[in-house]
Simulated scan of single mutants.
Amino acid sequence: MADGMARALWERYEPVHDLVYFAPRAHRAAEALGLHGFWMGYFALRAAPLGPVSPAVVTSCFYVFHPSRVARALPDAWGCAAPERVLAAREDAMDAAMTELFGPEVTGSAEFTEAADLAWRAAAAAETAGRVLAAANQALERPERPTARLWQALTTLREHRGDGHMAVLVGQGLGPAEAMLLKAAAGESDEQFLRETRKWEQSEWTAAKTRLRERGLLAEDGSLTGAGRAVRAEVEALTDAAAESPWTALGPDRTTRLAHLLDPLARAVEESGLLPPGNPVGMPSRSTPVGG
C-alpha cells in the first residue's frame, strides 16, 4: 500500500505490544517463573516462541543488544522455566494486563473481539520467509481469549516489521550501534539510554560514531548530515514497504477499521505512564492518520 497504512498500523500496535516489557503483570509473571531481574524476563518472554535457543541466536534476532547483555540472561532463563511455560505465563499476563488497563467492559466488547480477529487475520497472512521472529510467533496456536489473541497477533505483526527492518539495516551496512546512533541523532531516542540499556561499551559506541562520520552520515557534533537524513528516510521507507504484506492481504477497508479499533487502545497505553522515558523501543510520535 502506498498510503502509509503500514506505518499507521505500526504506530497503533507497537504501544499495545510493549505491555509485555513494561506492564507490572508481565514483571510479576516473570518473577513467578524464577526469571529474576528485568533483562532475564525480557529476553525469555520475547524469545520463548523460538524455543530454548542460545544467546548467539537471540543476539542475532534482536540485533541491537550487545552479546554480553544477552548472555547474562540466556541460557540461564531456560533452566528456570522452559519456553512452553514462559509462553503460557506471558499469555496469562497479557490477558490480565490488558483487562486491567483497558477495563473489562472494553476487553469484553464486540469491538475488541473484532479487533482481535482482524489482527489475527492480518498476522496469519504475513509473509515470514527470512523473518525468524515473525515466523516463530505466527506458528503459535490461536488463543481463545480475545485479549491474548489480540496481543499475540499484534506481536507477530510487530516482529514481522522488525525482521524486515533488520534486513534493511543489513542492506544499508548499518550495524547495531550505527543503527541506534542514527535513531538517536534523528531525535527518536535518547543516545545514552540506548547505549547503556543495550550494554555497549563507550569505546565500541565511539568507534561506531567514527564509522558513521567517515561515511558522511554524522556531523562532528553528532547530528545527522544531509546524507544521514537521506539514509534514515530510506531505511524507514524500505521498512514500511517490507511491512505491507499483512495489510495488502487484509485489504484497505479492514485495515482502516483495525487502525480505528486500535487507536484508543494505543492511546490508553501511551497515557498510562507505563512506557519509560527515553523511548527505548524507538517509537516515533503518532503522525500517520487513517481515513474513514
Rank of each mutant, 00 (worst) to 15 (best):
16 V>C: 02
23 A>L: 03
25 R>N: 06
37 G>E: 02
39 W>R: 11
40 M>T: 13
50 L>Q: 09
50 L>E: 07
64 V>W: 06
67 P>S: 14
83 P>H: 03
84 E>T: 12
98 M>W: 00
100 E>R: 13
112 F>I: 01
112 F>L: 09
120 W>V: 09
122 A>W: 01
123 A>G: 15
125 A>C: 07
131 R>M: 12
133 L>C: 09
134 A>N: 06
146 P>M: 03
148 A>I: 05
152 Q>N: 08
155 T>R: 14
155 T>L: 07
159 E>T: 11
167 A>M: 09
170 V>N: 08
172 Q>L: 13
177 A>S: 15
178 E>L: 05
182 L>R: 05
188 E>I: 10
190 D>Q: 13
193 F>E: 15
194 L>P: 01
200 W>R: 15
201 E>P: 05
211 R>A: 11
213 R>M: 10
213 R>Y: 04
215 R>I: 01
218 L>E: 03
227 A>I: 06
230 A>N: 11
236 E>W: 03
236 E>F: 02
239 T>F: 03
243 A>K: 11
257 R>P: 11
262 L>Y: 00
263 D>V: 05
263 D>A: 14
264 P>C: 11
264 P>K: 10
265 L>S: 01
269 V>D: 00
273 G>K: 06
273 G>M: 01
275 L>T: 04
276 P>M: 13
281 V>I: 08
284 P>A: 08
287 S>D: 12
288 T>F: 05
